[in-house]
Amino acid sequence: MDSLVVLVLCLSCLLLLSLWRQSSGRGKLPPGPTPLPVIGNILQIGIKDISKSLTNLSKVYGPVFTLYFGLKPIVVLHGYEAVKEALIDLGEEFSGRGIFPLAERANRGFGIVFSNGKKWKEIRRFSLMTLRNFGMGKRSIEDRVQEEARCLVEELRKTKASPCDPTFILGCAPCNVICSIIFHKRFDYKDQQFLNLMEKLNENIKILSSPWIQICNNFSPIIDYFPGTHNKLLKNVAFMKSYILEKVKEHQESMDMNNPQDFIDCFLMKMEKEKHNQPSEFTIESLENTAVDLFGAGTETTSTTLRYALLLLLKHPEVTAKVQEEIERVIGRNRSPCMQDRSHMPYTDAVVHEVQRYIDLLPTSLPHAVTCDIKFRNYLIPKGTTILISLTSVLHDNKEFPNPEMFDPHHFLDEGGNFKKSKYFMPFSAGKRICVGEALAGMELFLFLTSILQNFNLKSLVDPKNLDTTPVVNGFASVPPFYQLCFIPV
């Protein structure tokens, strides 16, 4: 009986604490739906499609509103004006990374994606500088992407125009580009180590996009005490870190300090320079996690976009025909596509942009946080508050993009057929937390897609009208449904 009384008292205290925290903070924060004790607004949000729920709530509470995930307040920004004001106009104040408990377990605050403060700034600055020195957006990395595009075309030829699921092959190409940047090595598509790495990356994007992960991140005790797919994700990350550590040891034994070959060499050189400046942010643990982040951000996002792009091109054969006509006119058949071609191919450029806009790969991006107490639109948001960005509300804005739910390359073309930029184009987020590999991803999408369409016609196994382009999961990332196609050599 005594234990029951204690339990009831504990629960009562928890409920009172929950109510007090919510009521004391709500006077400062933007308005929002009334949260339930302990669980907050979790029942009012469709976990399978958070973005749709945010759109519905914005119609009631406006472009800036507050939700509670458990006891934790989260300020939501919906629509271009609110997102721009926060991420661009007040970029420094909104540059923090929001709480992501599962990532905390995986990387302990290291790396480039989930770190904060001085650690994040130094690692991000170093990573950007190193990638630029190796030619991100310049010639040397373009050579690597072109080489991988040629290998991709050869792998597709091996399908002999038979029906195939493109998931694996389209994942190999961007993964190999990242391998060449980090390890100075590309792998054969049949290499077992490479296959294991690909498998872990593919599993992780599916797990991260599941409703279960949303629950884990908002009720963090689940991570330590409950079984579930989150444990598989943590094991996959541990596998990748151990693999990278092996490569780091190989580099330490063979590195030429006067001739760095890749990202690992550059990081080890930085560690050597910083060894007298303790404590340094440049450690082996930081290198492991930064490399894992580059793999995660640079492989599955690009391969998922490529997979979605081919599905949309199957669905819209008239678009595919126009792209192939432009390829034939500008590039021809006797040389590989290059980035200089893009400025002469406005329709193809528009298609690449429209694919990214339409699929809305990361509907709410990753959570941000404010780095200080900030007054925002007459609300006071306390330091450390998590900020949720609705990228969907920007990419699918119906004023900027008429009929935003329709796939239409003319969203990025003017009346004369010239490519038209849009400030609403934010597939990689915006501001200080914009994806480090934005330029690389854009290069890969253009070169891989043009190389495929230069060499193959795409054949659907069903009537294009019957192809479903609805994402199968739409949590962290929008993942396309399973499909097969035939690559018919031109």
Rank of each mutant, 00 (worst) to 15 (best):
A439G: 15
G442L: 05
A321N: 13
A350P: 01
E354V: 00
I178A: 06
P279D: 15
W20D: 00
N204E: 04
L11I: 08
K206N: 15
G40F: 00
M426S: 06
A161R: 06
F219R: 03
V248D: 02
I331S: 05
I42R: 05
F183M: 15
G135L: 12
Q193M: 13
F110Q: 10
F194Q: 04
I182C: 07
S429R: 04
Q454G: 05
P471R: 09
G228S: 08
N116I: 04
I141F: 13
F456M: 02
S53K: 15
L314N: 02
P402L: 08
L170M: 11
L440I: 05
I99R: 15
N196A: 14
I169G: 01
S343F: 10
F168T: 10
N133E: 12
R21V: 10
P337H: 00
N217L: 11
F376K: 01
R144I: 13
P367S: 04
L388S: 04
S429V: 04
L19G: 05
M255R: 14
Q22F: 11
K160L: 07
P367A: 06
A439S: 14
T302M: 09
K121G: 10
H230N: 07
I389Y: 09
C151V: 06
K118W: 06
I99Q: 15
V5M: 13
P464I: 04
I389M: 12
N231E: 03
K138C: 12
R377I: 02
S23R: 09
I213F: 15
F419R: 04
V177W: 00
I359P: 00
L447A: 04
N378R: 11
M198G: 03
L156A: 02
I284R: 07
E250M: 07
I47P: 11
K52M: 10
H410K: 15
I141Q: 04
Y379Q: 04
S286F: 03
E354I: 02
H368R: 11
E288S: 14
N56L: 10
K270P: 03
S303Q: 10
T348P: 00
L391R: 14
Y358T: 06
Y61M: 01
L366T: 06
L7F: 08
F134S: 12
G475E: 05
K275H: 14
G437P: 07
K190Q: 08
L449A: 02
G40S: 02
M269K: 15
Y243D: 02
K206L: 08
G416N: 14
Y189C: 03
P101Q: 08
I374G: 01
R97I: 07
R329E: 12
P33W: 00
Q356F: 09
A161C: 14
S365H: 09
G417D: 10
F401S: 04
N474K: 11
V83C: 08
G332M: 02
E85Q: 08
I215L: 10
L102N: 08
L67W: 06
M269G: 11
Y225R: 09
S180G: 07
L15S: 07
K247Y: 09
E92M: 09
P471A: 14
V292K: 04
Q261M: 13
D256E: 15
T290L: 14
Q484S: 07
H344V: 07
Y189L: 05
R333V: 15
P31R: 08
M257S: 12
T371A: 07
G475V: 06
V292N: 05
N259C: 10
